[in-house]
Amino acid sequence: MKKRTYTDHSIASSDITPEQVFLNRRALIKASAGTMAGALVVPSIAAAQASAQSALSFSPDADRSLVDEQTPYDAVTTYNNFYEFGTDKSDPARHAHNMTTDPWTVKVGGLVNQPGSLHLEDVLSKFDLEERIYRFRCVEAWSMVVPWVGFPLSQLLKRFEPKAEGKFVEFKTLYRRGQMRGTRSFTSIIDWPYREGLRMDEALHPLTLVAVGLYGKTLPNQNGAPLRLVIPWKYGFKSIKSIVEINVTAKQPKTSWQMLQPSEYGFYANVNPEVDHPRWSQRFERKLPSSIFKPNRVPTLPFNGYEEQVAGLYQGMDLRKFY
């Protein structure tokens, strides 16, 4: 059953609620959240979490959206990989509420003409938000279909004017030990903060999204609040969460999983059913929600089904070598 929490698909970007009204509304919702929670009988934990997210104004983007059955909100927000909060799929939903996301600043630097920082308020007011319904494919061979709300990363980068010698973009996740129990595990072998990177042309590709919401509302913490990347043709770990730093670099940046296990995780990490991972066969995926008797096992598509849009980026490259 498709759950639709957003209603109007015909909103044009010119119809978007003016900034001040929008921000005031958010403040109003926040202020009344306490009293509302007391007055309402909440049917489930997931519903309680959903009501904690504020609604966003956005326009749909039919061109780049999928006509596909969307993964239910509950599944999207309770089955996550966010190792800062623990390695179990249910850990982020249980522990990510410890992370404070307000105030939030993203530092943008490196090879740019206008280094500076973005506050969350700027992010929400300076960019036109749109909905993109993307396939999301994890390297662990499961997948979802998620209606994200965000804007192209290229719009953000252009504001800081990358220099011509900037060939790559590096991203870092928040690292705050006190609020992230997974980073305090002394047997964890990840070198925090979590890092990811993209080639400049990948970063500027129109499909590459900075997401601030899903299902029409702000991102829950476990999904990478307040802002994260979504690169639909790459394995999920490339879509870095809760970003606090963006650097334009000349050299290919190091990424967390690659540093940890270079034989298993490449820099590109494009979804490719032909290139196997030592742990999981990549030919099939379990499209969640899955069940025991109907595992919902479907063949994985090259570039996760976005081949037409992105294959050009990798022309002439040996994708077995640059996995």
Partner: peptide
């Protein structure tokens, strides 16, 4: 847990 749906969206795992 399986019967009551407590195992989440990926019960197999």
């Amino acid at each position: 847990q399986l019967a009551s749906g407590d195992l989440g969206p990926d019960p197999a795992k």
